[in-house]
Write a protein that binds this DNA or RNA. Sequence first.
DNA 1: CCGGATCCGAAAAGATACTG
DNA 2: CAGTATCTTTTCGGATCCGG
Lengths: 147, 147
Amino acid sequence: MNDKNICDDPCPIARCLAFLGDAWSLLILRDAHFGLTRFDQFRKNLGIGPAILTRRLATLTAEGLLEKRLYSERPPREEYVLTAAGRDFLPVLFTIGAWGRKYRGEGRLVRILDAETGAEIRPVLVDEVTGIKIGDRPICIAEPDGD
Amino acid sequence: MNDKNICDDPCPIARCLAFLGDAWSLLILRDAHFGLTRFDQFRKNLGIGPAILTRRLATLTAEGLLEKRLYSERPPREEYVLTAAGRDFLPVLFTIGAWGRKYRGEGRLVRILDAETGAEIRPVLVDEVTGIKIGDRPICIAEPDGD
DNA sequence: CCGGATCCGAAAAGATACTG
DNA sequence: CAGTATCTTTTCGGATCCGG
């Protein structure tokens, strides 16, 4: 893709494609939210080649979703932890998961539970002000001024 | 990627990657929700090569998010319209857009308005039962039985 | 003109071996 | 443990061409 001009695209979706338009990046983010931090943890869990993993981790770090943290001095060892932007990406993963559960749900699936109550979480996207579910009402797009 | 075994992955996110791990597919879905249906509409709006567009449309059709519909008999012309599964993908696009607005929001951005009230929509992901915002409480993952 | 199909060079994926 | 180097295979993206 043309990764140069999408940063200026007025669509906020297009601006995420530098890391979002890639299957590995999504799986790495999922595993990071699951608690994985180390190179070999990602590699073994995903079955990804080391060269590709290096590139994806570098991209996600450059895009501000992960950051490297030194966890050992001798020998120097680094791990990858989620930034605030990375943690804020959790709703995207949940929304994708909800779609997958509904339309790709044959067979066994993992479930997401509230850590305290144990109740299964059913994510739903609503408007913050009105509480109306997204998709229930027609929308329109307002173009930015100028362009 | 290895697109064969991810269909059996117990993670509902992984099962979406056949079409989700691709930047063009996301943009096509976005434009489809915007109202585009025809080959050349997508091609011109995205600046995508015809070969790639053909492949992406075929994938999205095979994955059940779009379907071909004949809109002209002579000459035979087909357009691509969203299925129910495709329309249900809207929350994913909104959630991505909300993240992009927050973390890639420099400059001009399109805005999403309620078609009737004109109020700007602020999507937020909550639990359907409790209404608690996703990310506000710790979660845990329940593995499926067997695997 | 619309909806593709074909061809080709460039890029990336995937696997394996190797290094500090 | 966290990568790099190297090689082969697949895919991407652009330009051009085809059928109705």
